[in-house]
Simulated scan of single mutants.
Amino acid sequence: MIKVETFLEKAGEVTAVAFDKIVTITEGKPEVAEIQIFHFSKEKVIQILASLENHTTHPIGKAIVSYG
């Protein structure tokens, strides 16, 4: 038998959660609404991000490419 209370207690101790982009969004069509860049050219950063995501099929990658 699994004690649910144990898992709930442990969940209360969590201080950070990280998600990779594969499980972040599974539905919908995200789009980039705003981008803020410090210390670099906004155009250059968008160009680099778009080139990295150019061949992706993931919705977030597609949104980055569309924004660029």
Rank of each mutant, 00 (worst) to 15 (best):
F7H: 09
F7V: 13
F38G: 04
I48W: 04
A50G: 04
V14Q: 02
T6Q: 13
E9C: 07
I35C: 05
E9Q: 13
F40H: 09
V14H: 02
T15E: 07
S41G: 06
I46M: 13
L8G: 02
E43H: 04
A50K: 10
H39S: 11
I48G: 02
T24I: 01
F40L: 11
I35Q: 05
I35H: 02
A33F: 04
E9M: 12
I35M: 14
L49D: 00
T24N: 05
K42N: 06
E34V: 08
K44D: 08
A18I: 10
V45Y: 05
G12E: 12
A11Y: 02
I35V: 15
A33P: 03
A16Y: 03
A16P: 00
V32S: 06
V23I: 13
L8M: 09
E5V: 12
E43P: 02
G12V: 07
S41H: 05
A11Q: 06
I37P: 08
D20P: 10
I22C: 12
E31V: 15
D20Q: 08
T15P: 01
F7K: 09
E31F: 14
T26R: 12
I25D: 01
E5G: 06
I22G: 00
G28P: 08
V4A: 13
K10G: 00
K42A: 03
E43Q: 10
I35G: 02
E34P: 10
A16R: 10
A33N: 11
V45P: 04
I48Y: 08
F40K: 15
K44P: 00
E5D: 10
F40R: 14
E43R: 09
K42H: 08
